[in-house]
Design a protein around this nucleic acid. Structure first.
Length: 343
DNA sequence: AATCCGGGGCG
DNA sequence: CGCCCAGGATT
């Protein structure tokens, strides 16, 4: 072999996307972030020393795309009800979805229970420590695996969430915001920035720094202890050219699906779903708003039905979304009746 | 790489 | 009312 492979030997573009960071600069950033974190970190309950690895895992799942302020009360109630993986694995799925409340993305709750079943059945009820093992669990991807390995077990890992990606990209690459999802190149780049000592504080610190100082919307650059060496700040904080278009909500299937889920949860809470909510009663109630049929349900369930009715009177569409809920495992259909799953 | 998947709250 | 929030799975 007298020659190297050709195609990949043009480093001109990638080196500017994720540039090498000079050693003194990196040390300054690491020391600053870690010191800042140890002084300014929020007192989150799952950061307390006696928190179990499972409790930390639960907090990470709940925090996916959901603000900490909304997670905290749900997490407390959840851990009080199901302290270990075996507890959650044994719980009725309808109760799990009800306890998930309105945290959003309810399939996260299903996958969390799936993960609990694997841990309880195959892993002696113990949360695995390595990112490789964690990533095999349902609902756990690269971020959550690294976070649990780092925060619950103190292992060195590369925690790369939206906060970390934004902070690193601003500091070292001069861009306002990261891409939609991290690629292999970015992950490797970020891994090289993790220090060998106090890597847990680094991981948690960069995340916290992105959440409190280097925020997406109104970063507090005047208060930033790194403003003098921040590439993005030096460039005058240029806005990224292409901002990802935000997903619609009003009028979408997602909104209507959520309202239908509310009916199931209300029916479950009121005991209306002992034999499931009849599909006929449900769809007729929704489309015709028939008082007779509504009266056969509890007041809270009827109110949830009325809310669906406000969003849509399209019977076919409602029918299709209910079918989707069954397919996704978020609802269960038995003899023409619809209910929350009872696995 | 782009989409979809909930829901709420803030500027 | 647009945008963002400790992402993951699928295509």
């Amino acid at each position: 072999m007298t020659h190297r492979a050709g195609p990949e030997s043009n480093p001109s573009e990638s080196s500017t996307t994720f540039p090498q960071v000079a050693e003194p600069v990196l040390r300054r950033v690491q020391d600053t972030i870690i010191a800042w974190f140890e002084e300014a970190a929020r007192d989150l309950p799952w950061r307390h020393p006696d928190t179990s690895a499972w409790a930390i895992l639960v907090s990470e799942i709940m925090s996916q795309q959901t603000p900490v302020s909304r997670v905290e009360p749900r997490w407390r109630a959840w851990m009080d009800q199901w302290p270990t993986p075996a507890d959650l694995a044994a719980a009725p799925t309808a109760e799990v979805l009800h306890a998930w409340d309105r945290l959003g993305y309810p399939r996260r709750a299903l996958r969390l229970q799936d993960a609990a079943e694997v841990i309880a059945a195959d892993l002696d009820n113990q949360v695995p420590e390595t990112t490789e093992e964690l990533e095999r669990l349902p609902g756990i991807g690269s971020y959550t695996a690294a976070a649990v390995s780092s925060f619950a077990f103190g292992r060195k890992a590369t925690v790369l969430d939206t906060n970390v990606r934004r902070v690193l990209v601003r500091l070292f690459a001069g861009r306002e915001r990261p891409t939609t999802s991290p690629g292999r190149e970015e992950t490797a780049w970020a891994a090289n920035l993790v220090p060998d000592v106090k890597h847990v504080e680094w991981n948690a610190g960069v995340m916290e720094f992105g959440a409190l100082v280097c925020t997406a919307r109104n970063p507090d650059c005047p208060a930033c202890p790194l403003h003098d060496i921040c590439t993005w700040n030096q460039l005058g904080r240029p806005a990224s050219a292409t901002k990802p278009k935000t997903q619609k909500w009003a009028g979408t299937d997602r909104q209507l699906r959520g309202a239908i889920m509310d009916v199931l949860k209300a029916a479950h809470a009121a005991g209306d779903d002992r034999h499931g909510v009849s599909l006929d009663v449900f769809t007729t109630s929704v489309t015709e708003l028939d008082p007779t049929l509504i009266d056969s349900l509890s007041e809270s369930t009827a109110a949830a039905v009325a809310r669906v009715r406000e969003l849509s009177a399209d019977r076919d569409r409602i029918s299709r979304l209910m079918t989707d809920l069954v397919t996704d495992g978020l609802a269960q259909k038995i003899d023409g009746r619809l209910a929350l799953p009872n696995r």
